[in-house]
């Protein structure tokens, strides 16, 4: 695994408010290669954002990283001081949030915000900053005239593009994105996805892309991790995972979105809703919603077992010795 830029090892994150802690990320491990595009999918509340925040070292109380390591470019980021993190953030990795409206400063122009970010990383040459600002705007296909705009003067799609432009200012090796398209129309969503993919190919950064809409990443990610109630329940290369999903939950997700191609088929989606993280069912946590449930599923907590081209956390694929 010499090519890995990121190695997430056994990360556990809990929210401790009153009563039982909610374990939003429960022993999650995966690696990411240089230039790789990893999609992370799952329903709301399954821990996607919490996992991204843990990776980017942006967790704040009541969230707490209980255990695990996040090795980024050979260095464990867990336990780094805020000053050290600040020098890495934006330069080595950047984060694009779900709502650009929350992430951008409403009272500053786009160029002022680009300026702040670059100065914070020691770029003080005004002409150089201007040139780079124009470059990244061109990368995301926005006229440089909008450097003078305030966030509210831009459409939702343009704001998300500006966020991505900002994330690329210092040419990071990794960009993590938390549902950057979910507030957008289908058309704007598609065009943003295509653009992210083109930029990633051209500039070679790695991407972790979080979404609740599995269909969105089908054409764009190299690998896919499916999360359920804090755990990765299936992980593998994207194409085989779509062609032959193994875990009953993955199959349910794939049975949730209508197609415009082929014959029209009735879809069922997934019955019920995800469990309360402070009160998980015994054994497999997908059990109450699973159509393939067996007696053993209440007793044994499944591990990730190889199956087909992927690995799935389901006792159907347990090695029987």
């Amino acid at each position: 695994m010499s090519d890995a830029i990121l190695d997430v090892r056994d990360v556990v994150v809990e929210y401790t408010t009153s009563g039982e802690p909610a374990r939003a990320v429960d022993h999650v491990s995966f690696t990411l290669d240089r230039g790789e595009f990893l999609g992370i999918v799952g329903e709301s509340g399954c821990g996607k954002s919490t996992l991204l925040f843990a990776i980017a070292q942006l967790l704040s109380p009541p969230a707490q990283l209980v255990s695990g390591e996040v090795i980024f470019k050979g260095r464990n980021m867990v336990g780094l001081r805020e000053g050290e993190l600040r020098s890495i953030r934006w330069r080595d990795y950047s984060v694009v949030m779900q709502s650009a409206m929350n992430a951008l400063n409403p009272v500053k122009t786009v160029s002022a915000q680009f300026d702040d970010t670059m100065r914070a990383h020691g770029q003080t040459n005004a002409a150089g900053i201007r040139t780079r600002s124009r470059e990244v705007m061109a990368l995301v296909g926005i006229d440089a005239i909008h450097l003078k705009s305030y966030p509210h003067q831009l459409s939702g799609g343009m704001r998300q593009r500006v966020m991505i432009a900002m994330a690329l200012l210092l040419s990071p090796d990794l960009v993590v994105m938390d549902e950057p398209t979910s507030a957008l129309d289908v058309v704007a969503q598609r065009s943003l996805m295509v653009q992210i993919k083109e930029l990633q190919r051209k500039l070679g950064f790695a991407v972790i892309f979080v979404t609740h809409d599995m269909s969105l990443v089908g054409h764009f990610s190299d690998r896919l991790a499916v999360m359920y109630a804090g755990k990765i329940v299936e992980i593998g290369p994207t194409r085989p995972l779509f062609a032959a999903p193994q875990h009953p939950y993955t199959r349910g997700l794939l049975d949730s979105f209508p197609s415009v191609y082929g014959p029209k088929v009735a879809l069922k989606g997934i019955p019920g809703s995800p469990p309360d993280l402070t009160d998980l069912p015994s054994g497999c946590r997908f059990r109450p919603r699973c159509g393939s449930v067996m007696a053993r599923c209440a007793e044994v907590e499944p591990a990730l077992y190889p199956s087909g081209d992927t690995r799935a956390r389901c006792l159907l694929f347990e090695e029987t010795v």
Partner: peptide, 23 residues
């Protein structure tokens, strides 16, 4: 046709064409 081509659909043929960035 533009709306149809924008549907995120893994069953669709893989065509990652230049993005329509209009609104």
């Amino acid at each position: 046709r533009l709306l149809l081509s924008a549907v995120p659909d893994p069953k669709a043929p893989i065509t990652i064409t230049a993005a329509d960035t209009g609104e």
